[in-house]
């Protein structure tokens, strides 16, 4: 087993809105094990060098989605980014496009509200089935949207998205993708209702299909593809509504 140690210089952005006028950088030299992920190096700083550093993490295994940061300018899940793939000097910043709460912690209220806004739950128009009846789903029906359920809300995609950077009202990749996950679910009947929100101004049309979101997504959700599929749905739904055809997929 290799346990090579390498000194790495971590340049970490610091910001305390109560004390600092502007964010600034502080450097720490960390003896890194090459098997570490960059989150381990940040935890080393917190445990051994500077207890005042604020950052979020929880699971250390790509599940909780809380450890997203900019690593050398790239939105990254820090528990998935290996030290061995990084140069000797690494710059760590809070996720781009979000207000800073403190140091590496960002304010996520905006995207939390957006995730809620897109109605991410199964909506039914038909009468509910008898209590002991289950909604069956075949493997094929599940596979239509399974990939989209892998999202862990790390918000790396919002940090990468040039359109969210320009317009904070844009619903954005993860929330649109979450909505598409329900639109594709055969148990759901709320697609047209949802499209009225998703394909409104600031909805899918603001996406210019640069694909940056899909490139940085640590869970390979491919939000850019989901959004393009939703544009097609939105365009079809528009003409359906114009022609007076109302109705949901069953």
């Amino acid at each position: 087993m290799s346990t090579r140690i390498r000194d790495m210089e971590l340049e970490i952005m610091r910001y305390d809105p109560e004390k600092d006028e502007a964010p600034w950088f502080q450097s720490y030299t960390v003896p890194c094990n090459e098997d570490w992920v960059i989150l381990d190096a940040i935890n080393y700083v917190k445990d051994n060098l500077d207890t005042t550093l604020a950052f979020r993490w929880s699971c250390h295994m790509m599940v909780c989605g809380s450890c997203g940061m900019m690593v050398n300018g790239e939105p990254s899940l820090t528990c998935k980014t290996f030290v061995r793939d990084l140069p000797d000097k690494v710059r760590i910043e809070p996720l781009e496009n979000f207000p800073i709460e403190r140091d590496l912690v960002v304010v996520l209220d905006d995207v939390m509200q957006k995730l809620h806004q897109v109605q991410p739950y199964i909506m039914r128009k038909d009468d509910p089935p008898a209590e002991d009846v289950e909604y069956n789903q075949t493997r094929g029906q599940l596979m239509k949207f399974k990939q989209l359920t892998m999202c862990i809300n790390c918000m790396c995609c919002y940090a990468a998205c040039p359109q969210y950077a320009l317009n904070k009202d844009f619903i954005g990749p993860a929330a649109l993708t979450l909505a598409h996950r329900y639109n594709l679910d055969n148990r759901d009947q709320g697609k047209s209702d949802r499209l009225n929100i998703l394909a409104d101004h600031d909805g899918v049309w603001d996406c210019s299909f640069v694909g940056a979101c899909s490139e940085v997504c640590p869970k390979h959700v491919d939000p850019a593809a989901a959004i393009q599929q939703m544009k097609v749905d939105g365009a079809v739904e528009f003409w359906k509504q114009k022609m007076g055809i109302v109705g949901d997929k069953s």
Binding site: D200, G203, F238
Partner: peptide, 10 residues
């Protein structure tokens, strides 16, 4: 809320 006219040009 309704689907925006951008649907046409898109």
């Amino acid at each position: 809320m309704a689907i925006a006219k951008k649907a046409i040009v898109w």
